[in-house]
Amino acid sequence: MMSQRTIQSIYTDGACTGNPGPGGWGVVVYFSDGSVHELGGASSHTTNNKMEMQAAIAALEFLQTSGQQKPITLYTDSEYLINSVTKWIKGWKKKGWVKADGKPVQNQDLLETLDKLNSYIVNWEYVRGHSGNIGNERCDVIARTFATGKVPTLTQSSLTDSHQALPQLNQINVAKITESPATLTIIETTQPENNSGSHITTMEPTIINSSVPIDDKPPEMRVAQLRALVETLRIADEIATKGYLITSSELADLMDVHASAVTSRGDQWRWRNWIVSRVRREGNQILWELERADQVGGEED
């Protein structure tokens, strides 16, 4: 039986050192209750495009096993992946997997798997890489860590009874990597309670909205929500400390509000422990800066 918790969005990314060379991929799944589930894997000899596709395959397999029928958005910074799945693949299949120049289509096996897993509920969206998007940045960290031969600490949702596809906590599955999707390693593990690492480990959305009074929720859910909030505040503090500029939509995701609630507040305002200031506009995006309120003066929210 499927719980009320649903997948809202999924981020995927791939990385490769050498191209071809050792590679890795990462997936971050965001749920409606604010919880997060991460997947990742590696290959000893691969290409960047293969890793982008392996990440998407893992994401779609996860979505398929969830049994969810509600639409989700899958974000990737690979235009090759999006174009392959949503545009080019129809023509390739009609022509027997041969391109216009007569050469065979590369990665046919992975593309056929993607085509089988793809669904009408999946909305493919491009996100520019290394632009400060939290989900994309986290996937990049996971993928690059695997590509360098290391195993990152992955966040696994603690609400195992809410998603039948999740494995038991504290379980790590490791196998030898090959290029075959069927034998691709997926590593899932519980995030430690004290994470002193410098990598951003992401929450989106970060503050849980629910009609159930907090005191009526199970203790493990209240603890999960508190951890989500603490992680949100940690991310905000890292953004402020390192001077990152974030867009209105990214800031809205961090605050768990609609983007209009950000842009309507003016050029400078306070949110929790930070002063939020409008810096400039780039194209159709407004960029914002966070500063600790105990270091600058600011107006209360």
Rank of each mutant, 00 (worst) to 15 (best):
L184G: 02
I207H: 09
N194V: 11
P22Q: 10
Y80S: 05
A165P: 00
L60C: 07
L154K: 01
T86D: 04
K176R: 04
S211P: 01
N123R: 08
S162I: 02
E38M: 12
K150H: 11
L63F: 03
A182P: 00
Q285V: 13
Q108E: 15
R138Y: 02
D267E: 15
W88Q: 08
T183M: 04
V127G: 02
A59C: 14
N136R: 07
V230F: 14
P213R: 05
K176G: 10
D256F: 05
P205Y: 04
D115W: 07
W269Q: 05
V257L: 12
T76C: 08
I134P: 01
E204N: 14
Q171T: 08
F31R: 11
H199Y: 14
Q268K: 15
A58H: 13
T148M: 14
G23V: 13
T160D: 03
S248N: 04
G23S: 10
P218Y: 05
N133H: 15
K95T: 14
I57H: 09
I121H: 12
L74M: 14
Q191G: 05
T202Y: 09
L290W: 00
L229P: 00
A56L: 12
S35P: 01
S66I: 07
S43Y: 14
L110W: 00
R272H: 15
V105N: 06
G67L: 04
T206G: 15
L184V: 07
A252P: 08
L254M: 06
L154T: 05
G132R: 08
G18S: 13
N194W: 08
G40Q: 05
E299I: 10
T247E: 07
T86A: 09
V36Y: 13
S211Y: 04
V279G: 03
E204Q: 11
S196V: 11
K90W: 10
Q8C: 06
L39E: 10
K87R: 14
G297C: 06
G18A: 11
V262E: 01
N273P: 00
L114F: 09
I142H: 02
A42T: 05
V127F: 00
G40C: 11
E300Y: 09
D301E: 15
V151H: 07
P192K: 07
L159F: 01
S248R: 04
C16D: 13
D33L: 08
L287D: 02
Q69A: 14
V141D: 15
I275A: 06
V279C: 04
K116P: 00
P213D: 07
Y75R: 02
Q171D: 04
Q8Y: 06
T76A: 10
S260H: 04
T206V: 00
E204S: 15
N284R: 15
T160H: 03
M51L: 11
I10A: 02
Q156N: 01
W271I: 13
T73S: 14
D294K: 12
